[in-house]
Write a protein that binds this DNA or RNA. Structure first.
Length: 494
RNA sequence: GCGCCUCUAGCUCAACUGGCAGAGCAACGGACUCUUAAUCCGCAGGUUGGGGGUUCAAGUCCCCCGAGGCGCACCA
């Protein structure tokens, strides 16, 4: 086999394997077409047999058999000696073998890249989850289900962009490095800018910048972007995850309920072919309309107790205690009510429901409810027992916002590391004038999980966060990378 | 962060109550005129995640460390 230095710089592909199958869906055994194609991909299986060679070639669209015949294919012997995992380009005629397999009868071929490590067991592939996530490229070659999930996610995001674009939303990109991490109750990652000599935070939400753009006259904006929260890792949490946030001027949270159910139903229909999804072996119907219910109602249904933020704190604590829900002494009524809901109710909500009207105390950026001053106009969309979306009629009053920020700062001073920091730039923007606006956030990883029936968030993230690997142990190393042969060294040192 | 479980050849997995670390596939060498996880012959492959301890003897029992999975906590 020739050296790495001889590998070509490009290869002219004239057909994908899928295109060949589309064009010749029903060739009979032994038929020839006279049609010449050039295909490229990786060798997944190889069956050299004397003066023939049968090779399964896979590209991003599918697979096709390469059929090598001595005297027809260039250097059949070498063709049959290629390893599983090698990339090759091959040109030849589309034919059907005597046994009825659609094939490319190879005339010429070229090695495009060597696979020094192989692709795992050719029948069982790889299943070690750590290997799958640390070396996702292997997983993708070997496991069809992994390819399917990541492709579906990509399609979901693409459909989402188009859908929002059609409704007049414009896409923007706001800063990821924040001088203060605002817009969500979460602990941030901290970093440092040398030239500025200043600490910066990786954003926990794009919210405040997006609303400043609404102040600037972008009446419908959205951002799809990574946010970072310094929290634990679990099958439903990755430290960096992708959020859709959108803001619509002149709208309130009821408008966003309609938007949310319509959007999710559309994505489900386009990606799975139905609004009736199967998740974790259970059916969930996401077609609109979704149920709308208040947080109080749902707690009454699921925990069998009436709660209200207006109740005396002692009474709320007693209710929580009776339900076995631990509460901190520092918590106010709103936080206790929310805690009761989260511990007793949320996980039971399988079918989609808009949980409406949250305590003001726990929603520092949401606008006071028009009918109840201790609540805000906020909803969370819950599906399969999990929060999928969070939205509210935005707080537009700068004085009220300052008061809310100050309450957050008090919590922070009392040791709550997730409490918000007062953001003067944002307050100034509100003073400049934010029209009535509704805002929505959807965790896209979670949405993708729902659509592809993934039980772990890692399945829909190409490279999920894992603990850095330090020990001398290594995965799948045959020593080749650590010990390049002399033949390859000059290439590495170029 | 805490609890439980897992880690054996490149991959997928065996190895009873502690008793000589094995197989299939891959890789490597060879045979084969239509294969479909081709088949056949041959060859090689390991500090059993790392370190320490108990024992005549440790993949197996004990301790420490590392990584992963699940659950709890936190959140989306």
């Amino acid at each position: 086999m020739s050296g790495i230095a001889d590998l070509p710089y490009r290869f002219e592909v004239t057909a994908t394997t899928a295109e060949i199958r589309e064009r010749f869906p029903a060739l009979g055994p032994g038929e020839e077409t006279g049609v010449m194609v050039s295909v490229a991909g990786r060798i997944m299986l190889s069956r050299p047999q004397g003066r023939f060679a049968f090779i399964e070639l896979r590209d991003s669209s599918g697979t096709i058999q390469l059929f090598g015949v001595e005297g027809v294919a260039r250097d059949l012997k070498q063709l049959g000696r290629l390893s599983l995992g090698d990339w090759i380009g091959a040109s030849g005629e589309v034919v059907c073998t005597k046994r009825g397999e659609l094939s490319v009868k190879v005339l010429d071929w070229v090695l495009l890249a060597e696979s020094r490590r192989g692709l795992g067991d050719k029948w069982k592939g790889i299943s070690d989850v750590e290997l799958r996530y640390r070396h996702r490229e292997l997983d993708l070659w070997v496991n069809e289900a992994s390819r399917r999930k990541l492709r579906a996610r990509s399609k979901m995001v693409s459909l989402l962009r188009t859908w929002l674009d059609k409704r007049g939303f414009i896409e923007v990109e706001t800063p990821i490095l924040h001088p203060v991490a605002g817009g969500a109750l979460a602990r941030p990652f901290v970093t440092y800018h040398n030239a500025l000599g200043a600490e910066l935070y990786l954003r926990v939400a794009p919210e405040l910048y997006l609303k400043r753009l609404v102040v600037g006259g972008f009446e419908r904006v959205f951002e799809i972007g990574r946010v970072f929260r310094n929290e634990g890792i679990s099958p439903r949490h990755n430290p960096e995850f992708t959020m859709l946030e959108l803001y619509q001027a002149y709208a309130d949270y009821r408008d966003l309920m309609a938007l949310t159910e319509e959007l999710v139903a559309y994505l489900a229909q386009e990606i799975t072919g139905s609004t009736r999804l199967i998740y974790a072996d259970r059916i969930v119907e996401v077609g609109p309309p979704w149920r709308r219910a208040t947080l109080y109602e749902l707690v009454a249904e699921n925990a069998g107790v009436d709660v209200s933020v207006k109740m005396p704190i002692e009474r709320l604590r007693r209710i929580a205690d009776d339900l076995g829900v631990p509460v901190e002494p520092s918590w106010g009524p709103g936080k206790v009510v929310l805690e009761i809901y989260e511990k007793t109710t949320e996980a039971n909500l399988w079918d989609p429901v808009f949980v409406c009207d949250y305590p003001k105390e726990v929603s520092p950026l949401a606008r006071q409810h028009r009918d109840d001053p201790v609540l805000v106009e906020r909803f969370e969309a819950i599906l399969v027992g999990r929060e999928l979306a969070n939205a509210f009629s935005e707080l537009t009053d700068p004085d009220d916002q300052r008061t809310r920020f100050e309450a957050q700062m008090a919590l922070r001073a009392a040791g709550d590391e997730e409490a918000m920091v007062l953001d003067e730039d944002y307050l100034r923007a509100l003073e400049e004038g934010l029209p009535p606006t509704a805002g929505l956030g959807i965790g896209l990883d979670r949405l993708a999980m729902l659509l592809v029936d993934a039980q772990s968030i890692r399945e829909v993230i190409p490279f999920p966060t894992l603990r850095p690997f330090h020990s001398s142990r290594s995965y799948g190393t045959g020593g080749a990378l650590e010990d390049p042969s002399d033949r390859d060294r000059d290439v590495f040192e170029k």
